[in-house]
């Protein structure tokens, strides 16, 4: 269990336009969903949280993780795990190599590291996949490998950037359940960014717009309507 992820008056402006205005606390094991159509500042929010906001955006407010102010830390020191829409596995490394890249260096010894990797793969139904080329994995396998890689780096909070959007409908529910279960098991605060109301519903926690409006309980209808409009 880790401490909460705190967004304190986090505001992001692009010129005169306010894209993000959020004050919220995500406790360990809780999933908060930020929902809105594309272009509504969702990816901007993730850029601000990971420290990869492009030049031109004005950021104010603070981000605290487990009591530490991480607003100005470099990405690598923030302790935030991130999952993208695509798995973004490193194409030049094997599946095991990808997981090894994430595993902290303090776990020493080839055998010990390999054992951790194998155990992680086995826990996700990917036993024996370590030497495989990531390009040969199915969509679901890739999504699971990406989540394992993120978790092996021992993050203290998890950010999900529409990680289910590219998956087939039947696979989506399965991977979503897998991801949420693993995040809760790890006891991490989770911030989910999505435009899909089903994601928000499955997450079960509070649902907000990037500007902090509460989209629950009337979330379903309103969000669906917005979604259509965005399409």
């Amino acid at each position: 269990m880790t401490g909460p992820l705190d967004l304190q008056s986090l505001c992001i402006d692009l010129g005169p336009r306010r894209l993000v205005d959020l004050t919220l606390t995500i406790r360990a094991g809780e999933i908060v969903t930020i929902m809105g159509p594309s272009g509504a500042g969702k990816s901007t929010l993730l850029g601000a949280l990971t420290g990869t906001l492009p030049a031109g955006f004005a950021l104010s407010g603070r981000v605290r993780l487990d009591g530490t102010d991480i607003t100005d830390l470099p990405t690598r020191s923030r302790g935030l795990g991130l999952l993208f829409q695509d798995a973004v596995l490193f194409p030049h490394l094997s599946v095991g190599g990808n997981l090894g890249f994430a595993l902290p260096a303090r776990i020493r010894g080839r055998a010990e590291r390999q054992a951790r990797i194998d155990a992680a793969l086995a826990s996700a139904g990917l036993a024996g996949f370590a030497p495989r080329d990531p390009a040969t994995l199915s969509g679901g396998q890739r999504a699971r490998a990406a989540l394992l890689r993120t978790l092996l780096a021992e993050p203290r909070a998890l950010l999900l950037d529409e990680p289910f959007a590219r998956l087939d409908a039947d696979l989506r529910a399965q991977i979503r359940r897998f991801t949420f279960d693993r995040a809760r098991q790890a006891g991490l605060p989770v911030l989910l960014v999505t435009h899909d109301p089903e994601d928000a519903e499955a997450a079960g926690g509070p649902v907000l717009s990037p500007l902090g409006e509460n989209l629950r309980p009337a979330a379903k209808g309103a969000a669906r309507h917005r979604d259509r409009a965005a399409d």
Binding site: T52, P74, T75, R76, F84, V88
Partner: peptide
Amino acid sequence: DGRIATAAATMGAS
């Protein structure tokens, strides 16, 4: 793909 760098940085890579 710059997301590779972001993904790696979130895992603590320098």
